[in-house]
Design a protein around this nucleic acid. Structure first.
Length: 422
RNA sequence: GUGGGCGUGGCGAAGUGGCUAACGCACCGGAUUGUGGCUCCGGCAUUCGUGGGUUCGAUCCCCAUCGCUCACCCCA
């Protein structure tokens, strides 16, 4: 029994799984680069105020999920719970608004939220995401969504549904919220406990509450899409039009709400139905007031974030695997101390020319080493025993043909390359 | 924070109130002195998450605790 354990909600990503992560990371870089997004790396922790201001201090994230602590200088520090606030903070602090706009950025990395773990949810999790700051053009909304769609398909997730909505701007959203609350208040006592508190905190959530969504009064609630101002309505129509042009399939979900305070206008989610209750694998939206509220110029923005862990679950659910077997090209077997001296040179020389080579370091017998070479699917074995040490000739064995020849030490690498290429 | 399920060797997985806790995989060793995927033989848990309790006796019963897991909430 181990004496030490990883913290609750964290994961050790072992070598086999790490290969899947590398694949996803490479695809992020490759696909996002073709859309001319450039990577930005911001700190994993920020001053707490960045998230309080950026994410919104009424959200669950800020109220009860942040990893916040005082550092040795009595500064309140928070491990980032999401990526956008930090990127926008950097955009403002580094004055990226002085460069070409919109800034098209992407990021990738760990996030932290103090939550009870479950399928698709951990305390340290990883997201990739993009932020486009400096344009309100609906073509940007469409590009961001199409990028997400393209990326998911490129990595092998084809079973998602794209849900789309507009949550309006501060003007029409407030008007709608007032109308909604006025509509629901008379039946407040009939709602579940959660919804009674949501009615003041986040009334939009009541619309898709699992308990109350089918209440007739709830069902007849005013929808945000019916309360959009002219600008928001035109923008939403334009986004849908571009998505149609791009042939990106979506469904309008009038109940779609975004959790974070900063969202405006476009909101969207890619949902995968077979990975458990946490089925959103990528989500995002527009945040036109965020840059200003973090002290920058009043420029609009839009972005999305996707969860790597959930993406991996979705890949598994889609039966997609990018496993790479644990293999080696050459296995060097040395059977004595003198042989070891020769083997380290052979290994180095092979690796210098790019050949994947390994050896036994536990003093096992030749037979056992042969088994290992076999299991690692080695193409060539190099044997160095007493005879070889004496003669200075190494036995090079082609493991597929079982042909074995003696080669002068200086010619070994060339001979092996010969076999590997045949 | 709340609720359900579970906790036996590296992994998967039987098991019963009581003599040495199945089996499979993996791993290690051996089957003509230094040679491979098959086969055969052998090895590998004084111990059943931890701590108490009940009992003549508990891995199997009770309590507590820790951990894992799924779900609610919320979110990527």
């Amino acid at each position: 029994m181990a004496d030490y354990f990883k913290p609750r909600g964290t994961a050790d990503i072992l070598p086999d799984a790490a290969l899947q992560w590398q694949y996803v990371e490479e695809m992020v870089q490759k696909v996002f680069a073709t859309y001319h997004y450039r990577e930005i790396r911001t700190p994993i922790f920020e001053h707490t105020e960045v998230f309080e201001r950026g994410v919104g201090d009424t959200t669950d994230i800020v109220q009860k999920e942040m990893y916040t602590f005082l550092d040795r200088g009595d500064r309140s520090i928070t491990l980032r719970p999401e990526g956008t606030a930090g990127v926008v903070r950097a955009f403002v602090e580094q004055k990226l608004y002085g460069g070409p706009l919109p800034a098209k950025l992407y990021y990738f990395g760990p996030m932290f939220r103090y939550e009870t773990p479950q399928a698709g949810r951990t305390r340290q999790f990883h997201q990739y995401g993009v932020e486009v700051i400096g344009s309100d053009d609906p073509r940007v909304d469409a590009e961001v969504i199409e990028l997400a769609d393209h990326f998911l398909r490129a990595v092998g997730v084809t079973s998602t549904t794209l849900e789309l909505n507009s949550v309006g701007c501060p003007v029409c959203r407030v008007a709608h919220k007032d109308a909604l609350v006025a509509h629901l208040l008379p039946i407040k006592d009939e709602l579940c406990e959660d919804c009674q508190s949501r009615i003041v905190r986040n009334p939009l959530r009541i619309l898709d509450c699992k308990i109350d969504a089918h209440h007739p009064v709830v069902e007849s609630s005013p929808m945000i899409t019916d309360h959009l101002c002219d600008d928001c309505a035109a923008h939403f129509a334009a986004v849908r039009n571009y998505l149609d042009l791009l042939e990106v399939p979506y469904v309008v979900n009038k109940k779609l709400v975004r959790g974070l305070d900063y969202y405006t206008k476009t909101a969207f989610e890619f949902v995968e139905g077979s990975i458990g209750a946490q089925s959103t694998i990528l989500a995002g939206g527009r945040y036109n007031g965020l840059v200003k509220s973090l002290g920058g110029p009043d420029v609009p923005g839009i972005g999305f974030a996707g969860g790597i862990e959930r993406l991996l679950l979705a890949l598994a659910a889609n039966g997609v695997s990018h496993e790479v077997p644990d293999e080696v090209e050459v296995y060097v077997m040395a059977l004595s101390n003198e042989a070891h001296a020769m083997s380290v040179n052979i290994l180095r020389d092979l690796r210098v020319v790019g050949v994947v080579a390994d050896a036994d370091y536990t003093g096992r017998g030749l037979k056992a080493q042969m088994k290992t070479a076999d299991r690692l699917n080695a193409k060539v074995a190099v044997l160095i025993g007493e005879d070889e040490v004496k003669s200075g000739q190494l036995a090079v064995r082609d493991l597929s043909t079982r042909e074995q020849i003696l080669v002068a030490q200086g010619d070994t690498v060339a001979k092996i390359l010969n076999i590997l290429q045949s």
